[in-house]
Simulated scan of single mutants.
Amino acid sequence: MGQIEWAMWANEQALASGLILITGGIVATAGQFTQWYFGAYSIVAGVFICLLEYPRGKRRKGSTMERCGQKYMTKVVKLFGPLSRNYYFRAFLHLGLSVPAGFLLATILGTACLAIASVIYLLAATRGEQWTPIEPKPKERPQVGGTIKQPPSNPPPRPPAEARKKPSEEGEEVVAGAPSGPQENPIPVTDEVV
């Protein structure tokens, strides 16, 4: 059985955690909870996490399904360089971002989910995984004439291959464009009117 790539699971978990933090932060801020500023923090942290985690990393083996519009966010994440590629950094970043949101009941679920994502990222980092962007493959141009070995010598319409007579077999020369013998009408002529 193949080896599990933990970063893929951590990415999905962290993205869901960011969305849960945003939702809990909106509830806490709109409801004017006593410590509503933790809710505002959760909104900002959740948006940051979603932007960081939206582009999927390329898998080692097999193909990776790209998210819709991921190529634009991939360019932004690549700007952070080794900080965005290193899963140790992501593990400790997510753990640090989850702590302040844990002081409010509305955001505690997002905090727990983000802490789990942090642990999964730490596991991925210890296994030697790192984030690599999904690069679009260059399109190969079809080579013109690569599939055609010998161009046809007769103009269309051509009879089937078994009905064609080769001039060398008959012993007579055929002039281009001139019929070589009696021609049969391929369309039957009938007197019936439809």
Rank of each mutant, 00 (worst) to 15 (best):
Q3A: 12
E5W: 06
E5S: 11
A7P: 05
A7H: 13
W9I: 06
N11H: 15
L15C: 03
L15Y: 03
A16H: 13
S17G: 15
G18D: 09
L21P: 00
L21S: 06
I22E: 13
T23P: 00
T29N: 08
Q32C: 03
Y41N: 01
I43L: 15
V44T: 13
A45R: 04
G46I: 12
V47G: 00
V47R: 02
F48C: 14
F48S: 12
C50A: 10
L51T: 09
P55D: 08
R59K: 13
K61S: 13
T64E: 05
M65H: 12
R67F: 10
G69W: 05
K71I: 14
Y72D: 10
M73I: 03
K75P: 00
K75C: 03
V76G: 09
V76L: 15
V77S: 05
K78T: 03
K78Y: 03
K78N: 09
L79P: 01
G81P: 01
G81F: 10
P82A: 12
F89G: 01
R90M: 05
R90F: 04
A91E: 05
H94Q: 06
L95S: 06
G96E: 11
G96Y: 03
L97G: 02
L97I: 02
L97W: 07
L97Q: 03
S98L: 04
P100N: 07
A101L: 01
G102S: 08
F103C: 01
L105G: 06
A106Q: 15
T107C: 04
T107N: 03
L109D: 00
T111M: 12
A115Q: 10
A115W: 05
I116N: 04
A117V: 10
A117S: 14
V119W: 06
L123K: 10
A124Q: 14
T126M: 15
G128M: 08
G128N: 02
W131H: 07
P133R: 06
E135H: 13
P136M: 13
K137G: 06
P138E: 11
R141A: 13
R141V: 13
P142T: 05
P142A: 07
Q143H: 01
V144W: 04
V144K: 00
P152H: 15
S153Q: 08
P156V: 04
E162I: 04
K165T: 12
K165S: 10
S168L: 09
E172N: 07
A176Q: 15
A176R: 14
G177A: 11
G177Y: 13
S180V: 13
Q183A: 08
E184Q: 15
E184H: 10
E184T: 12
P186W: 08
I187Q: 01
V189H: 07
V189L: 10
T190F: 02
V193Y: 12
